[in-house]
Design a protein around this nucleic acid. Structure first.
Length: 820
RNA sequence: GGGUCUGUGGUCUAGGGGUUUAUGACGUCGCCCUUACAAGGCGAAGAUCGAGGGUUCAAUUCCCUCCGGACCCA
């Protein structure tokens, strides 16, 4: 008997790391293996990888999702597709600005703009490096050589070009509109960036008077906004107040530069049961106020300025911050006896997602992408996209039902893509750069081949070089884009839009958008909006929306709960014999979790097996190890066992014994399931099928039958085990690439990760497959009988009969169980 | 307050009107070092499918209400 060619007794994290490092060490062979070769002639499959946002450590839930995207990319290669699995890093945005502000303890706007941008770029680069390392460690087969950065000139140029195209088409407009504004960070934000937090506020019941001397009580949490009140409304069906309608209510606070009374009207949005049932509508206390103002055709008052301070119209409150003004207003009202009651209550208030600052609604001139007019067309396109799981399409449709205003895209920040526009001195004309340029209007002049457009009509007036002197002193736009304006091009960029038109033609709609469900309303929605506006096409063929990683008790992992688990700690668990331990805050106190070995292969296998796409998944390192490391050990040992027998050079031509025909037919059935699952992007089913076959029926039943023949050097048995194992490794390698690579290289000198055609097996023999459960049952019975009789499993046994239905298997079963 | 999704042995999961005495895995218990594997193998126990109603000849599966969880919105 020869020694196994797999010398290691079992799979280990150190072995895994060694393979991983070799795998990524030589970039030339790496690119040969995983680089995108658009001219290969194979059908293209472009993955719109979510470019991760570097922020220090990578979240374990995110890494789990990326590893599944990698499974898809690898399985598509296996199916013969030319896969582009890009590696991008999302580096624009307010987060990195905050990080720099925090690190240097200095606010952005106290810096020179250029100096601040450099600090951002340096900071984000260190985070980016750490991320690339984790990406390799978990086995991502991205095209790293073609790395794209969303803050790089080539990427930003695409964003700017798309902006100009949409502007020329009339899909981007400038307007003075109420905007959601973060006064602390000094920038406009979009609806999608607003979140709500619960906070205690004072609900003040203020006594108002009508012009006829009647008293009415109006409850408000924002007495400082009385100066911006445009109307007082009651519900049209509220019998208590019908006599008031049409009268005027006198503002209980002094105001300056405006009327001191407002009309009383009706509006259906009033909740009669809330407070007194009378509502003051201010410009702009909240979104409802905005809607009422628009519907009633009222002229808004500007009560808050860009610094978040009260304006002139608030008279005595002028110049105070909103909070100061609120307290002062309460004080003034109290002194003048106009408060009947103050109640503490908790209220949900809107804050900015990033800065957690209470937001205000302010009238500002901003840039918008028009979106309300195109919703129906978008829905038609969305119909054509295949969602995984199908139910998650609903997240998108629900969000779209709520779209009522256009998308504000300009921001008063710095580390973002600049709005590529210059204004003529008289503001009538704008200058835009030619497509493909990245420009920074706040510090540069327009490129010489820029065009001059009429600001309102968008008509092209002429070239900048010719008209230069007639424009007066031109002014570069200082504002930048919302980061989603960049992110929502990712599918266009990776599919070759503008830069590789010949690829784009074949690659769009982009094959796959994989993402988490928490950013459906932003990333997915905005991307689809753009493909509809720009190309009138669906942006994708498939959208794959995964669930969220949760802590072991089903709660979202977050810093504030202290229940987060760092990705590297899981991937490195077991390396160098070091065990992993985690302290996680559970619902009742801290819990210690321990694991001896996990690593990338076990981690990927766990995610592939544990949860269907779209389901939230609990992350517990102890469980990952306990449930899935054994699977690797088992498979490794099957391979190790096989590795002591040589594979015959050619398939034996003499007939195979029934047990070999049977297991090959079973394997064919498994391969059919696996192939169709990979085609459907169904990781779960593919993995389950492989696991069941590889750890169950193959070793437990067939191997036991074939053992003797293998030891005797039987060619049929050797051919059977190797041909199955080789194809098994190929189809399993999307899930555990390093594991399969190592075994296949050692045994066959070819890597399973290089297989680019789904292995074809012989036909399924239905009649043999029908005997499978009988074989399993019979084996179980014999094992059980031996146990009951106190016999060891390899002892001879008398009186057991092979049933007639398994007549064909009589010989092999008799030998296997040593039946007498 | 509203919407969407979700609730299956201790844990995680499959299934989805009758073929189900509900799948598999982990854990538990018992037995076994059997010429790949004790980081193994074999076997056993363990679930009135969240609760309550309804539709039906038949419900874990469909509908309603409630309870719990997640996400989103106002």
């Amino acid at each position: 008997m020869s020694t196994p060619r797999l010398p290691e007794k079992r799979w280990s994290i150190d072995l895994e790391k060694k393979i991983q490092e070799e795998h990524y060490a030589d970039s030339e062979s790496y690119q040969q293996r995983y680089g995108f070769k658009p001219t290969s002639g194979k059908p293209l499959f472009v993955v719109d990888t979510p470019p991760p946002y570097p922020s220090g450590t990578w979240h374990i839930g995110a890494v789990a999702q990326y590893s599944m995207i990698d499974v898809i990319a690898r399985s598509q290669r296996l199916l013969g597709k030319e896969v582009y699995f890009p590696w991008g890093v999302d580096r624009n945005g307010i987060n990195i600005e905050f990080t720099v502000e925090k690190n240097t303890k200095r606010k952005m706007k106290t810096y020179d703009r250029e100096e601040f941008l450099n600090l951002c770029r340096e900071t984000i680069e260190t985070f980016t490096q750490a991320m690339r390392k984790t990406a390799a460690r978990v086995g991502l087969s991205c095209d790293f050589a073609a790395e794209y950065l969303t803050d790089a000139p080539d990427y930003r140029a695409v964003t700017q070009s798309i902006f100009i195209d949409l502007f020329k088409k009339g899909d981007i407009i400038e307007d003075l509109r109420p905007n959601i504004y973060d006064p602390v960070e000094g920038t406009t934000i979009a609806d999608a960036e607003v979140e709500r937090i619960s906070r205690n506020t004072k609900l003040v019941d203020v006594k108002w008077q009508t012009d006829t001397g009647e008293e009415l009580i109006i409850s408000t949490t924002r007495p400082e906004m009385i100066c911006a009140c445009g109307v007082v409304v009651v519900h049209p069906d509220d019998q208590r107040y019908q006599h008031l309608v049409g009268k005027r209510a006198i503002l209980p606070m002094p105001v300056s530069g405006r009327e001191s009374s407002v009309e009383i009207q009706t509006h259906p949005s009033v909740k009669s049961e809330f407070g007194s049932g009378i509502l003051m509508v201010c410009s702009f206390g909240d979104q409802n106020d905005v809607a009422v103002f628009r519907e009633l055709g009222l002229t808004p008052y500007q009560a808050i300025d860009l610094d978040g301070c009260m304006t002139e119209i608030s008279a005595d409150l002028s110049g105070m911050t909103v909070i100061e003004a609120r307290n002062k207003a309460t004080e003034i009202l109290e002194e003048s006896g106009k408060i009947s009651q103050i109640e503490e209550r908790s209220q949900e208030i809107p804050v900015s997602e990033r800065g957690k600052n209470p937001v205000e609604i302010i009238l500002l001139k901003e840039w918008y992408v028009r979106q309300t007019h195109i919703q129906d067309r978008m829905r038609e396109h969305i119909e054509e996209i295949q969602f995984h799981p199908p139910r998650n399409r609903q997240f998108l449709l629900d969000w779209m039902d709520n779209i009522s205003i256009d998308w504000p895209i300009s921001r008063r920040r710095w580390y973002h893509t600049e709005i590529p526009i210059w204004y003529s001195e008289d503001e009538e004309f704008i200058v835009v750069p030619p497509s493909g340029n990245y420009v920074q209007p706040w510090k540069e002049q327009p490129p010489i081949d820029s065009r001059v457009l009429n600001r309102d009509s968008r008509e092209d007036i002429g070239s900048f070089s010719e008209m230069k002197d007639s424009l007066g002193e031109i002014r570069g736009e200082e504002k930048v884009f919302d980061t989603w304006m960049d992110s929502s091009n990712s599918n266009l960029f990776v599919s070759g839009y503008l830069n590789h038109p010949e690829v784009f033609e074949k690659a769009f709609p982009t094959a796959l958008r994989p993402q988490g469900k928490e950013i459906v309303r932003t990333w997915l929605y905005y991307t689809l909006l753009k493909s509809t506006l720009l190309l009138d096409k669906p942006g994708f063929q498939h959208v794959w929306i995964d669930g969220l990683g949760m802590d072991p008790w089903g709660r979202k992992m977050s810093k504030s709960l202290g229940n987060g688990i760092d990705a590297d700690s899981v991937l490195e668990c077991g390396a160098g014999g070091r065990t992993g331990s985690w302290k996680v805050k559970g619902p009742s106190g801290s819990v210690s979790l321990k694991a001896n070995k996990i690593g990338s292969e076990c981690f990927r296998l766990w995610k592939a097996c544990e949860a269907q796409v779209g389901d939230d998944f609990h992350i517990n390192p102890e469980e990952i190890e306990a449930k899935y490391f054994g699977v690797l050990t088992k498979l490794f040992n099957v391979a190790r066992f096989a590795s002591q027998f040589d594979m015959p050079d050619v398939e034996p031509t003499t007939p195979f014994p029934v047990e070999d025909r049977w297991i090959r037919s079973e394997f064919s059935a498994t391969m059919e399931t696996v192939e169709s699952s990979w085609n459907d992007l169904d990781i779960y089913s593919a993995t389950q099928a492989l696991k069941t076959f590889g750890t169950g029926i193959l070793p437990s039943h067939w191997l036991e039958m074939a053992k003797t023949r293998l030891y005797d050097g039987d060619m049929h048995a050797a051919w059977t085990i190797h041909s199955i194992l080789k194809d098994f490794l190929a189809t399993f390698s999307p899930i555990c690439p390093f594991f399969c690579h190592h075994i296949s290289m050692t045994l066959y000198g070819e890597s399973s990760v290089d297989v680019d055609q789904f292995p074809t097996q012989g036909p399924v023999d239905k009649q043999l497959n029908q005997l499978t459960s009988e074989v399993e049952t019979f084996n179980s019975e014999v094992w059980k009988t031996k146990k009951e009789q106190g016999l060891s499993l390899n002892a001879e046994i008398e009186g057991v009969m092979v049933p007639d239905s398994l007549n064909e298997f009589k010989g092999t079963l008799t030998r296997m169980h040593k039946l007498l």
